[in-house]
Design a protein around this nucleic acid. Structure first.
Length: 112
DNA sequence: CCAGTGACGGAAT
DNA sequence: TATTCCGCCACTG
């Protein structure tokens, strides 16, 4: 039962997996939805394990500034921006254009 | 067991 | 308004 900690990571994966195409969210928003405050770091840390999660749109997760802070952690850093553009999200200077409009609130899941 | 680090966020200066 | 420092929680060395 000491491995229950994985539950926290699983929750994060579930939320990220529910991010609609053409939208993005922030680590803090995900952490907030999980009920953990200031847990944005934990969310980002969990994303590091996302390498094992195929189909996990981690590229849709950015920091609160809308900057692709984690693009450098992908197999190919350029792939993150490429995927965002494929989703219809414009990225300039490693930053999401109209990030505010592209922002998606994960809280929408709990209301399901 | 202790110390350092990290895909962040917010408060302070 | 912008830049800097600190804090939170988990993992590695």
């Amino acid at each position: 039962m000491k491995h229950n900690k994985e539950n926290l990571y699983d929750l994060i994966y579930q939320i990220v997996d529910q991010i609609p195409k053409g939208k993005v969210t922030t680590y803090g928003a995900i952490a907030n939805s999980l009920g953990i405050k200031s847990g944005a770091r934990m969310v980002g840390y969990a994303m590091n394990a996302s390498h094992s999660m195929s189909g996990l749109p981690a590229h849709r997760v950015v920091n609160r500034n809308g900057v692709l802070t984690g693009k450098h952690h992908f197999d190919d850093p350029d792939e993150m921006q490429k995927r965002l553009e494929l989703d219809g999200i414009a990225v300039q200077d490693d930053q999401i254009v109209d990030f505010k409009k592209r922002f998606w609130d994960p809280c929408h899941i709990g209301d399901m």
